[in-house]
Design a protein around this nucleic acid. Structure first.
Lengths: 182, 182
DNA sequence: TATTGCTGCGCAATCCGTTGAATAAGTAGT
DNA sequence: ACTACTTATTCAACGGATTGCGCAGCAATA
């Protein structure tokens, strides 16, 4: 349960609205933790009650008003406290992998089709991450090290997935056009 | 929400009790989806209500009675239907990665310590998977192909993580003993 | 002109998941 | 003899997460 901490990490160096955070969860931090806007607004509400964040109300015209949140001392303390204690290993929940495990029930060609869809996604992410990492490493500021390392994780992960996909492709093509064993 | 489907996949070729399934979730399929026994019993209850599975009540002496579940026609249909429709991309929730992203607040030495703990876990898993994959590829039966591919995924994943860890180590050692930028 | 999309916030219902506990009897170890 | 673990199932409470909906107005596109 550390959506709260992911939010606090993001608020560490910027003031942001719930909407801003939602966008960041879709991008940068989304690589590491994701959440919908409903969850984020809810959690911001709780964090506010607990004085971990506070906000300024910003009236806008043309657009709806917004609340710009920033982290408080108490929030930073909580974050540091959390950073100190060991994290539980991530729980794994990959529906596509469940499909592979149960793949004997499908036709190889159907599995291959979905594999390619997933591979497209991964390739897209890979190039996004690579571009971002490139940009970061050029202006080599001290502070971005951790963002860079996070991106590297994403990059290595996509590459690993794609080479696994190569293996699956090779394996399934042998079986394609053969009758299903179901 | 496809714990149900993971269960159906497991019941595809064996009759099993909730307890059996729980053990399998801790091992083989746990690599791909995990669940506690409470969840499994609950889901089996629901699946039973919906006639996707049925059970035989087996009285035992010495041990508590058990219910041996098997998949029904309706269950198999549901599974096939699910296999056909594209899977949503997995949601990512990795607390350790959130820590890296917010790492500027911690001391590098603390991050390194936790990195090594995680790395130990990964190395352990890696060798388990490698042994299992080895065993599977020796008795090369048609049917195990999918299990093998699932294991390969686990193997490549652990390796990718470990080489990422090498990068982190190299990067953080530069910063070790330097004052925190917080 | 109608539709879609973006900015921005929020509620309510429901479902999924975790934690903790209870029951019950056998077996293995100190 | 006592403790701990394994087999086997289930309940209760809570909190996290998803889905669906609603409001509101502006900009751009079809």
């Amino acid at each position: 349960m550390s959506l709260r901490h992911a939010i606090l990490v993001l608020l560490q160096d910027q003031e942001a609205s719930g909407y801003d955070l939602a966008r960041e969860f879709a991008n940068s931090i989304g690589l590491v933790w994701n959440a919908t806007h409903q969850q984020i607004y809810l959690e911001l509400g709780k964090l506010n009650e607990q004085d971990m964040v506070k906000y300024r109300h910003i009236p806008q015209d043309g657009k709806p008003d917004k609340k710009l949140y920033r982290i408080t001392e108490a929030g930073r303390d909580e974050l540091i406290r959390w950073l100190r204690k060991p994290a539980a290993p991530p729980r794994i929940r990959d529906a596509f992998m469940v499909k592979i495990a149960g793949g004997a029930l499908s036709e190889p060609s159907a599995v291959l089709r979905e594999l390619e869809d997933q591979a497209d996604l991964r390739r897209e992410r890979l190039s996004t991450f690579e571009e971002l990492a490139q940009a970061l490493s050029e202006r080599n500021s001290e502070k971005d090290t951790y963002t860079y390392l996070t991106l590297r994780r994403g990059i290595l992960d996509q590459r690993a997935w794609l080479s696994w996909a190569d293996e699956v492709r090779a394996e399934l093509r042998k079986r394609e056009d053969l009758p299903t064993s179901a």
